[in-house]
Computed example of a mutant assay.
Amino acid sequence: MIESTASWSNYVNIREYEPGDLDEMAQLFSDYRVFYEQPRNPHLAKQFIAERNRAGESVILVADSGHGELLGFCQLYPTFCSVAAAPIYVLYDLFVSPAARRSGVATRLLQAAAARARVDGKVRMDLTTAKTNLQAQSLYESLGWTRDDVFFTYNLTIR
C-alpha cells in the first residue's frame, strides 16, 4: 500500500511494461475501465493487456514506485496520420492510482510518452478525454497539448 507521496514521489521510475508486471498492470487497467464506467472485469483486463503485449500492438509505460508496486500507466497505440503522411501515437489510456494522484506521476508518464514518441519517429501524439475531466485537460495543456476546436470526434459501435 502506498504510504505517502512524499516518501516515494522522487523515486518513481517510468519504464516500459514487462510481462512480469501483468498482474499489477491488469489491476490498474481494470481500475481505469471502472473510472470510465465499465464493469469491473479483472480477467478481461489481464487478457487485453497480455494480448496487446504479445502482438506488439501497443507501448505501455508504467510508473514503478521502486517498492514493488505500479502507481500508474499510459498506453500508446501506433498508427498513421494521412494528412501529415507520417506515423503518430494515440495515447489512449492514462491512469494513476487514486493514492498516487496529484504527485506528478501523470506528468512524468506524459513526458516519458512524448520522449518515446520522439525516439520512435512519431510526428505527433493524439488523445481524447471526457469533456468533464477538467483536471486532466489542465494537465495536458500545461504540458503543451492543444485542444482541437475544429474537429468533432464520432464513434460507431460495431457489435
Rank of each mutant, 00 (worst) to 15 (best):
M1K: 09
E3P: 09
T5W: 14
A6R: 05
A6D: 10
S9Q: 15
I14N: 08
I14L: 01
Y17T: 07
P19S: 07
G20A: 14
D21R: 00
L22G: 09
L28D: 04
F29P: 04
F29W: 15
S30Y: 03
Y32N: 05
R33S: 03
R33I: 01
E37M: 08
P39W: 00
N41P: 02
H43T: 08
L44R: 13
Q47K: 11
F48V: 12
F48H: 10
F48R: 09
A50T: 04
N53H: 14
R54P: 01
V59H: 07
V59Q: 09
I60S: 14
V62W: 04
A63P: 02
G66T: 06
G66D: 10
H67I: 11
E69S: 13
E69Y: 15
G72Q: 08
C74P: 01
L76T: 00
T79F: 11
A84G: 09
P87L: 06
L91G: 04
Y92H: 15
D93V: 02
D93R: 03
L94W: 03
F95W: 06
V96G: 07
S97E: 04
P98I: 07
P98K: 09
A99S: 11
A100W: 04
R101S: 01
R102F: 09
G104K: 02
L109R: 06
L110Y: 11
A112L: 01
A112K: 08
A112C: 03
A113C: 01
A114C: 10
R118L: 12
R118K: 14
R118T: 10
V119N: 10
V123K: 12
M125R: 02
D126I: 15
A130T: 09
K131A: 12
T132F: 12
N133G: 03
N133D: 05
L134Y: 12
Q137K: 06
S138A: 13
S138G: 12
S138D: 11
L139D: 04
L139R: 03
Y140M: 02
E141R: 12
S142R: 12
S142D: 01
L143W: 08
G144E: 06
W145I: 04
T146P: 01
D148N: 07
V150F: 14
F151T: 12
F152Q: 07
N155K: 15
L156F: 13
I158K: 08
R159Q: 11
R159P: 09
R159V: 05
